[in-house]
C-alpha cells in the first residue's frame, strides 16, 4: 500500500484540514444556538465558554490550514503546465481535465469557483470566532450582531462545502499525483 508525496499532501489538505473543518460545524452550531437563545437554553459555564473558545480557534486554524495548503502546495501541482512534447497528462490534472470536453467543466466551473470561494470560509470563521469569544453569552443581547454571526457562520459552511465538494470531485476525475512514493504498509505476500 503506497501513496505518492503529492497524494499525501492532498489528503492532508482535503481530509486533514477541510473535512475536519466541515465536520466541526455541527458541534459549533449547537453551542452557538445555546449562546443565541439565552431564554430557551441553559447558559454556558465559564469552563464551557473557555472550551468552546478553543474549539472555535481550532476551526479557524483548520480553515486557514485548508486554504493555505491548497493554494500553496496542491494548487501549483494541479495547474502545472507539461513541458513541450509531453503527451501523458497524468501528472497535470488541470490540463488533463481541459483536454476532454466531458471533464473540462470540472476546471472551468469547479476549480474556478472553489479556488476563490474557499477563502470566504477562514475569513468568515475568524470573524465568527472573534465575536463569539468576545461577546459569548452577551450575544443574546445583540440581536443584529447575532444575526450577522449566524449568517457568516452559514456562509463559511456553504463556502467550505463548495470547496470540499469540487475538491473531491476534481480529485476523483484528475487526481493530484507524483513525487516520491511512500510505502504505508507491506505489499501482497
Amino acid at each position: 500500500m503506497t501513496v505518492t508525496f503529492r497524494e499525501f499532501i492532498t489528503e492532508i489538505h482535503g481530509m486533514g484540514f477541510g473535512a475536519l473543518f466541515l465536520s466541526a460545524f455541527s458541534g459549533a452550531l449547537m453551542v452557538i444556538y445555546r449562546l443565541c437563545t439565552p431564554g430557551k437554553s441553559s447558559p454556558l459555564s465559564k469552563s464551557e465558554q473557555t472550551l468552546f473558545g478553543a474549539y472555535l480557534i481550532s476551526m479557524v486554524v483548520l480553515a486557514w490550514g485548508a486554504v493555505l495548503s491548497g493554494a500553496y502546495f496542491v494548487y501549483p501541482w494541479y495547474r502545472a503546465h507539461p513541458p513541450a512534447g509531453v503527451t501523458d497528462l497524468t501528472e497535470y490534472p488541470q490540463r488533463s481535465l481541459m483536454a476532454n470536453p466531458s471533464t473540462a467543466g470540472w476546471h472551468d466551473v469547479g476549480m474556478e469557483w472553489k479556488e476563490h470561494v474557499a477563502w470566504f470560509a477562514p475569513i468568515a470563521m475568524t470573524m465568527v470566532a472573534y465575536v463569539v469569544i468576545k461577546y459569548s453569552s452577551q450575544l443574546g443581547r445583540h440581536r443584529q450582531v447575532r444575526n450577522a454571526v449566524v449568517t457568516f457562520f452559514a456562509a463559511a459552511l456553504f463556502a467550505a462545502g463548495i470547496a470540499g465538494f469540487f475538491g473531491a470531485m476534481i480529485n476523483k476525475h484528475a487526481p493530484v499525483i507524483g513525487g516520491a512514493t511512500m510505502k504505508l504498509m507491506g505489499g501482497a505476500k
Binding site: P38, P43, H116, V117, W119, F120, I123, A124, T126, M127, Y130, V131, K134, Y135, S136, S137, Q138, R141, H142, Q144, V145, A148, V149, F152, A155
Partner: peptide, 27 residues
C-alpha cells in the same frame, strides 16, 4: 453574565464589516 453591563457592539461591527469586505475583495 446577564447582570454584567452590555459590551458595546463597536468591536463586533468592525469584525463583521471587515469580513464582508474581505469576502467581496476576494471575488
Amino acid at each position: 453574565e446577564h447582570s454584567a453591563p452590555t459590551i458595546p457592539n463597536g468591536s463586533a461591527a468592525a469584525a463583521i464589516l471587515a469580513a464582508g469586505v474581505g469576502c467581496a475583495s476576494v471575488s
